[in-house]
Design a binder for these strands. Sequence first.
DNA 1: ATAAGATTGTTGCATTTGCAACATGTATTT
DNA 2: AAATACATGTTGCAAATGCAACAATCTTAT
Lengths: 159, 159
Amino acid sequence: MLTETFDKKFMHYIDTPSYDMELTSKYCKTLLVQLFDKICSEISPEEFIVLDTISCNNGLCQRDLARLILKDRANTGRILDSLEKKNFIIRYNDTKNNRLVRKVNITKMGLDMLEKLTLRFQPYHEQMCKLFNEEDLLILKASLKKIRDAISKIVELQI
Amino acid sequence: MLTETFDKKFMHYIDTPSYDMELTSKYCKTLLVQLFDKICSEISPEEFIVLDTISCNNGLCQRDLARLILKDRANTGRILDSLEKKNFIIRYNDTKNNRLVRKVNITKMGLDMLEKLTLRFQPYHEQMCKLFNEEDLLILKASLKKIRDAISKIVELQI
DNA sequence: ATAAGATTGTTGCATTTGCAACATGTATTT
DNA sequence: AAATACATGTTGCAAATGCAACAATCTTAT
């Protein structure tokens, strides 16, 4: 048999936690997208996530926001264009370290939309959390953070 | 202060394990891409992952492969086109359930390339594993699987 | 003081990706 | 037996994404 000749003593990338996470993350993304199709026609899942991030970090400049959502400045700007056009956020000029920047705030309309959407996700969120006991959830969260911290030291995230 | 008027009693998507994983997964992907830039010019990170998947699952048809890597049939076919052109895989016609399918095998050249690349990743992989004790690693793996299984029941992955 | 460098945001372009439509061949239904 | 539905793979197209180049503005160096 052909597979008999294969030397499988080396490890496989697809068995690593990194790739395991990539696949799992795709599942989560697919779920989010499909839920959004049913629930919401006003904004995209990406815009929802950015809106949620802004609501927790009012007054960020665009680049700092880009660093949080791990997208480049170009795409961050484009998403903000869309959210601003729909009056879910407002942008205003300000300074940071004596530099002219465009800062972002969420509007009342944005907050209302965010709250509406979040309430609809609540059941799915609770269902997901019910999968774990408190301790495993903490370990999962801590493990993810460990990975991010370790990679931060090796890789330069050019944003 | 403006933030005082915000009602933060609802949960945030960005605090969920799903999003936590999405961000962490992006870190991992960035690391992989940057390593590949230095290490390898022959194939892309995506092609590497597909090659690794094929090496562990010889003789799959394209759709079954697509289901493993969570990409649609179109992109799976395109990646295979590229890998075949470089002689890292071979495709051949066969039948599955009385249906004509194109199955995929890895070649000797493909295996050699895979082994070469895997050896170069070994140090990074070990460094990553050293972050965890055995138990946390198992919990992480189990948690990811739990999430995927739960989502599988809700979402139809149209591949 | 002038030039070089750095930071922020925008625009253009090429790549990746997913979705829908299509062609081909098989299974099922009527 | 004919028609409908299903499975597989390919092609075309549109949206998302990242990268490089650019403009504007500020800092640092010579």
